[in-house]
């Protein structure tokens, strides 16, 4: 066991669906105060990995440790309460609730009092640039804003680790660079560990401290952005295909 306090650590995770291997022996560590990029072509197993880490699915074999505790079989909400939260590809905001209420309810869910929840919501709406929409129903938000709202909602649980599932899809260039700043802010000021699943290669290369590449359910490469950029197999399997 190589994990130590202050990390989210998965060892040899495998997941098989009806005989088909979606993930095979993947080991990954996210430390606090660190942004890890998770990239790979479609079907590489990124979503499966996020589901296993967040408790939305459970591994066929392997284990997940959170700050020294074995959380492999924990439910999603127990993980949230322990400081591990995720966002969703399509935002999955509560459509009938306002943007503010979406954030408040997440804070309440982790045991915050009403006043604390309200303060957190104000702060996060400001941070995400959603303050103008705070009383708009989530269903009326543009897709890009809905994703940002999803991130704000996750942050409202005061996480130690955040799994961001394609948060930047649907954002334009300016919004993406603003979002990169948000990610760094969360890392530096909240001291959180972030796993960023993203197709936008410039964003990943720009913001991540380390990058983990999956291909066909297995780890293809791991390293600093520079190492990954110069990794021949990665360029073949992934970067070359999408960067161009």
């Amino acid at each position: 066991m190589t994990e130590r306090p202050g990390s989210l650590h998965a060892t040899a995770l495998s997941r098989t669906y009806a005989g088909v291997r979606a993930l095979e022996g993947v080991t990954i560590t996210v430390r606090r105060h660190e942004v890890i990029g998770l990239i790979g072509p479609n079907g590489a197993g990124k979503s499966t990995l996020v589901n296993l880490l967040s408790g939305f699915d459970f591994p066929t074999s392997g284990s997940v440790m959170l700050e020294g505790f074995d959380i492999t079989t924990w439910s999603a909400h127990r993980r949230v309460r322990s400081g591990l939260v995720r966002t969703f590809q399509h935002g999955h905001a509560f459509p009938g609730l306002t943007a503010r209420e979406n954030i408040e309810v997440a804070a309440l869910g982790t045991g915050a009092a009403r006043g604390v929840a309200a303060r957190r919501a104000t702060e996060l709406l400001e941070l995400m640039g959603l303050a103008d929409h705070s009383n708009a129903e989530a269903a009326t938000l543009p897709h890009g804003d809905e994703r940002l709202l999803g991130v704000a909602r996750a942050l409202a649980t005061m996480p130690k680790f955040v799994l961001l599932d394609e948060p930047a899809a649907g954002l334009n260039e300016d919004e993406i660079s603003a979002f990169a700043d948000i990610i760094k802010l969360v890392r530096d000021e909240r001291n959180a560990g972030i796993l960023l699943i993203e197709h936008n290669v410039p964003l990943v290369l720009g913001v991540c401290d380390r990058i983990h590449v999956l291909d066909q359910g297995e780890t293809l490469a791991e390293g600093s952005p520079t190492e990954i950029r110069n990794h021949p197999a990665v360029a073949d399997a992934y970067l070359g295909a999408t960067a161009g």
Binding site: S54, G55, F56, A76, H77, V80, R81, V85, R86, F88, H92, F94, P95, G96, L97, E101, N102, E104, V105, A106, L108, G109, T110, G111, R114, A117, R153, T157
Partner: peptide
């Protein structure tokens, strides 16, 4: 009320609400 807000969240999307720790 808190519980009312959580009730609306559950009505909106139970699975996500549950995952966020709503009881």
């Amino acid at each position: 009320t808190d519980i009312g807000l959580q009730m609306r969240a559950v009505a909106s999307d139970r699975r996500i609400a549950q995952a966020l720790g709503v009881r």
